[in-house]
Design a protein around this nucleic acid. Structure first.
Lengths: 212, 212
DNA sequence: GCTACAACTTGACAGCGTAAAGATCAGATC
DNA sequence: GATCTGATCTTTACGCTGTCAAGTTGTAGC
């Protein structure tokens, strides 16, 4: 019946992971309000106090779920990067599209991830996976960082633009382009907004030796 | 003792407004977690069930508080617009700076405003004041809307950029520029990010008859 | 004076997060 | 093999939350 785990330290097997998965499921099905210690426990088949033991309370559980969400988030971006047009600008726009698509497909998870205030959270949990998820952005922005400019500036420009659009879109702020049914309208506006990134000059096109 | 109101329909005077103000106060002092129907009621000096009567439950109260917050938000932007450099680009960047400053000065209120999903909320309450608050953005973007382009596109570009930066800054995402103490670092990164708006061509500079 | 109605209060309920104490089991030690 | 130890999980209880139903109080119209 149960898959034989290599280690079965106690009753359940791997309760920690099961609780995180239950949390993700609750979040996706019922939105942020549905994520509850007691419901997580019930879904995982344990008593209501078990989660607190593993995650040190609800904030800890949310942090763990956010970390799992961030991992999936990164996969969305990397997949889009690999599948899209293989030019520097194509890759840049691809991860931005992956950004939006993840948020569209995982609304509650996206809100959980970015609702967190890293400056006051026990950041060790998220900042590791955060740096891990930041790498694709850094990689795709690199071709557009002018000499003498900090890469963080270009990264902040791109991140701000795509995160702002995604957040506003998700909260229904763009009149006419927020109907979840009309995905084409949203994608059209998204492309138009991302056209602002065409202003980023691609570096290294004029190599030393070229005629300027 | 009490200021004589023109209308004093019942015991309290103007409980509705008092509850909203109490909610704002709770939000600013204790963050999102502190906003509670019962605490609002206690702060306004009424019984714990009184707010539900006026706002139809907690979501209604939050909506009313968000509307009040949005009004203040708009004032921040308009003030910045009036006080800043009086050029089209100066006004545009001024309201963006006002956007960031409001969020910095009213963290919880900002999260409440933009945490709302307008597509599922009883939107009548917020969409009115939303349109009212949207006007400054529209006004400041107008000089940068090319002929034949929908103004919504430019507005979405600017809004996405400034909202994304503000959200990421507020949630501590920019390593090194999110220390609340180091306001200069944050402002520096903000200006660098907003430099992307210099790519927006100002329309109407080359009037018909000018040389090119 | 009486009625009708809106503005609250009171009391009760289920669900929530949290904490303390008890039960159960795996593995090390003797 | 018996015993100890510590982690894992359950049980119980507490205060706080939003919501509802019923009762009370004040206001206005007739």
């Amino acid at each position: 019946m149960a898959v034989p785990e290599p280690k079965k330290p106690h009753h359940h097997g791997n309760l920690r992971e099961a609780l995180v998965l239950a949390g993700v499921q609750l979040l996706e099905q019922g939105g942020p309000e549905a994520l509850t210690l007691r419901r997580c426990a019930a879904l995982a088949g344990v008593s209501h106090a078990a989660p607190a033991h593993h995650f040190d309370g609800l904030p800890g559980l949310k942090l763990a779920i956010a970390a799992e969400g961030f991992r999936r988030f990164r996969n969305y971006m990397v997949d889009a990067e690999v599948l899209g047009e293989q030019t520097p600008r194509g890759r840049l726009k691809s991860i931005c599209r992956g950004y939006l698509n993840f948020a569209r497909d995982n609304r509650a998870l996206f809100w959980l991830i970015f609702g967190y205030d890293l400056s006051e959270a026990p950041s060790a949990g998220l900042s590791d996976v955060g740096a891990y998820g930041y790498a694709p952005l850094r990689r795709c922005c690199a071709p557009f960082v002018p000499a003498g400019t900090a890469p963080e500036v270009v990264e902040a420009q791109v991140w701000s633009l795509v995160h702002g659009f995604t957040s506003l879109y998700l909260s229904g702020r763009f009149r006419g382009a927020c109907d979840p049914a009309d995905e084409a309208a949203a994608n059209g506006l998204f492309d138009a907004v991302m056209a602002l990134l065409d202003a980023l000059p691609e570096q290294g096109l004029g190599k030393p030796g070229d005629l300027a």
